[in-house]
Simulated assay, not measured.
Amino acid sequence: MIDSRPHEDDPGVIRRRRECVSCGHRFVTQEGTINIAGMRAKRRRAQAVYLSRLDPEVKAARIAASNLRRDAKFEAAETGRPLADVLAAWGVAAPSRPALPNP
């Protein structure tokens, strides 16, 4: 790296001049910064608002389904059976996943 400075228009971007060590070609890169902690805090706040507005019956059903999947995964790991077989034995439909497109 030859030179580093903030971008003229955006203080969140750093402009760097670099030089290739093998051929000596010079080029410019622009590197942006992201506030990861701020993004995570914003996501947590949005999720809390969503959950606070969610119907209590729906919330309870989601928690029960999550606990059931957790228990089924635990039993599948203990017995060595596939998770789908454990869920079928319990009378619970295995979670469906979209099919991958064939190339």
Rank of each mutant, 00 (worst) to 15 (best):
R18P: 02
E78V: 14
M1L: 08
P98C: 12
D9V: 09
T29M: 07
M39S: 08
A41C: 02
D55R: 01
P95V: 12
P6A: 15
A76N: 05
A94V: 04
S52K: 07
N67E: 15
S52D: 14
A61C: 04
L83N: 02
D85K: 10
K59G: 01
F27T: 13
I36R: 06
L54T: 12
A48N: 06
E75T: 13
P101T: 09
A89D: 15
T33S: 06
I2K: 06
V49H: 04
H25C: 09
L87M: 14
C20K: 06
R81E: 11
I36P: 00
S52C: 05
H25I: 09
H7C: 15
A88G: 07
E75W: 04
A72P: 02
L51Y: 05
A94Y: 01
D10H: 08
S52R: 10
R17E: 13
D3Y: 04
R62M: 12
G12P: 00
P98N: 14
A93Y: 01
W90Q: 13
I14A: 07
Q47G: 04
I36K: 05
E31S: 09
I34T: 11
R44Y: 03
I2L: 12
C20M: 02
Q47S: 07
P95Q: 10
F74W: 08
E31K: 04
N102A: 15
S4R: 12
D10T: 09
H25G: 04
P82R: 12
S96D: 15
G80V: 13
S22G: 08
R40W: 01
R53E: 12
K73T: 05
A84C: 11
A64G: 06
G12T: 15
V13K: 11
A37V: 12
R16S: 11
L51G: 02
T33A: 05
V92F: 03
R97L: 14
G38W: 00
I2W: 01
G91L: 11
V13P: 01
F27R: 14
A76S: 06
I2T: 09
D55N: 10
P82V: 13
P56G: 12
H25P: 02
C23R: 08
L51E: 15
L83E: 04
A93V: 12
I63K: 03
R62L: 10
E75L: 09
V58L: 14
G38E: 04
G80L: 10
M1V: 07
A37C: 01
N67H: 13
P101M: 09
S66F: 00
A61T: 04
R62V: 09
R26T: 13
L100A: 15
R17N: 05
S52G: 05
L100Q: 15
R5E: 14
D10Q: 10
G24F: 00
P82H: 07
S96L: 14
S52Y: 00
D9M: 11
P82E: 12
V28G: 02
P103G: 13
I34H: 02
R44D: 14
G91P: 05
S66V: 05
S66T: 11
Q47W: 02
A77D: 08
D10M: 08
A64C: 07
R5G: 08
A76Y: 00
